Amino acid sequence: MATTVTERPGDAPSFETTPIGRRRKRTDLAMRIVVTLAFVIALVPLISLLWLTISKGLAWLSWDFVSTDMVGVFGSMTSGGILHAILGTLQITAWATLISVPIGLLTAIYLVEYGRGALARTLTFFVDVMTGIPSIVAGLFAFALFTLIFGTSYRAGIMGSIALSVLMIPVVVRSTEEMLKLVPNELREAAYALGVPKWLTIIKVVLRTALGGIVTGVVLAIARVIGETAPLLLTVGLVAQVNTNMFDGRVATLPVFAYRSYQQGGIGMDRAWAAALVLIVIIMVFNLIARAISKKFSIAQK
Rank of each mutant, 00 (worst) to 15 (best):
A2K: 04
T4C: 04
V5W: 07
E7N: 03
P13Q: 11
S14Y: 09
P19R: 15
R22D: 13
R23G: 15
T27Y: 15
L29S: 04
A42L: 11
P45M: 15
I47E: 08
L50W: 01
L50F: 07
L52M: 11
T53H: 01
T53C: 02
I54A: 09
I54F: 01
W63K: 10
S67L: 10
T78W: 00
G80F: 07
L87Y: 05
I99C: 06
V101A: 07
L105F: 11
T107S: 05
A108Y: 05
I109R: 00
Y110M: 09
E113D: 00
Y114K: 10
L119T: 08
T122H: 01
T124E: 14
F126K: 12
D128R: 10
P134S: 10
G139A: 11
F141L: 15
L148A: 14
I149G: 05
M159W: 08
I162K: 01
S165I: 10
V166H: 08
L167R: 03
L167N: 09
P170S: 09
P170Q: 11
T176M: 11
E178G: 08
V183P: 06
R188K: 13
E189P: 09
Y192I: 13
Y192R: 15
V196Q: 07
W199C: 05
L200V: 11
A210W: 01
L220N: 01
I222H: 06
I222Y: 00
I226D: 05
I226Y: 01
I226V: 11
L233P: 00
V236Y: 04
L238G: 06
V242C: 03
D248I: 10
G249P: 02
R250L: 05
F257N: 04
Y259H: 02
Y262I: 10
Y262Q: 05
Q263A: 12
G268M: 08
D270V: 07
R271E: 04
A272T: 05
W273G: 06
A276C: 02
I283G: 05
M284L: 14
L288S: 13
L288K: 10
K296F: 13
K296Q: 13
S298H: 02
I299Q: 07
